[in-house]
């Protein structure tokens, strides 16, 4: 390497930086007082690479003596925290009916447009539905489109839709990933019987639109 070359090489980052700056300055709207970070020049130790190799081997050897962090998935399935936002479920009320009243607030709140509901008047002939006006005839969630943000459960006035800790959702077809009402109620049945209820719910304490709660005598006095 001649002196001239070294000089040019050494000066190269600077030059290129300056050309970039110059090029940027010509562009309309380029900021004048931009601070450019340059990559550091390599010293002797770095150009040898040996110290870096030694420290790498050091790390490898050290890992041999500490606890293994690798999860043996899927042989060992992890237990997700109870506030994990996974597959949705549609809750049932105390009588086993779908708790959803088809108010469409989740569909309104959904930023991914993955919920589609069709509402209908509750079957008034059926004595089990006497106290309900409206119910969801169809309730479909496109689990592929969903971004699991949880805004649907925040919007729900009757705590009917919840995200569970089920995370390993797979399907062979797109159609399989369209969860209808029956499938979502099934998720409720599974999660409620296996003690995997999400923690965000106020299970048992429902809003006035869901069930009529008799006021307590003590409440009246206070």
């Amino acid at each position: 390497m001649t002196d001239a070359q070294t000089q040019t090489n050494g000066a190269q980052p600077q030059t290129s930086g300056e050309t970039r700056r110059a090029a940027n300055a010509e562009q309309p709207g380029a900021k004048k007082n931009v601070k450019w970070a340059e990559s550091p020049t390599l010293g002797l130790m770095e150009t040898l690479y040996l110290p870096a190799i030694a420290s790498g081997i050091g790390t490898t050897i050290r890992r041999m003596f500490v606890r293994n962090e690798t999860r043996q998935y899927p042989e060992v399935e992890p237990i997700m925290p109870a506030n994990y936002r996974g597959v949705h479920r549609l809750n049932r009320d105390s009588q086993g009916r779908v708790k959803c009243v088809a108010c469409f607030l989740c569909q309104t709140a959904c930023p991914a447009n993955c919920i589609s509901i069709e509402a209908a008047a509750a079957p008034k002939d059926d004595p089990a539905w006497q106290d309900r006006d409206k119910f969801p005839e169809k309730f479909e969630i496109d689990e592929l489109r969903c971004i699991y943000c949880g805004m649907c459960e925040q919007a729900c006035p009757v705590d009917a839709i919840e995200l569970t800790s089920i995370y390993d959702l797979t399907g062979a077809t797109r159609e399989e990933m369209m969860f209808d009402k029956e499938k979502l109620l099934e998720v409720f049945d599974i999660t409620s019987t296996t003690g995997k209820d999400p923690v965000r719910t106020t299970s048992g304490k429902l809003g006035p639109a869901s069930e009529f709660v008799e006021p307590q005598a003590t409440q009246l006095r206070s």
């Binding site: 009243v101 088809a102 108010c103 607030l105 006006d133 409206k134 639109a209």
Partner: peptide, 10 residues
């Protein structure tokens, strides 16, 4: 009844 969630007028 404050049943705005199922009321058509909401």
């Amino acid at each position: 009844p404050l049943d705005c969630s199922i009321c058509d007028q909401a």
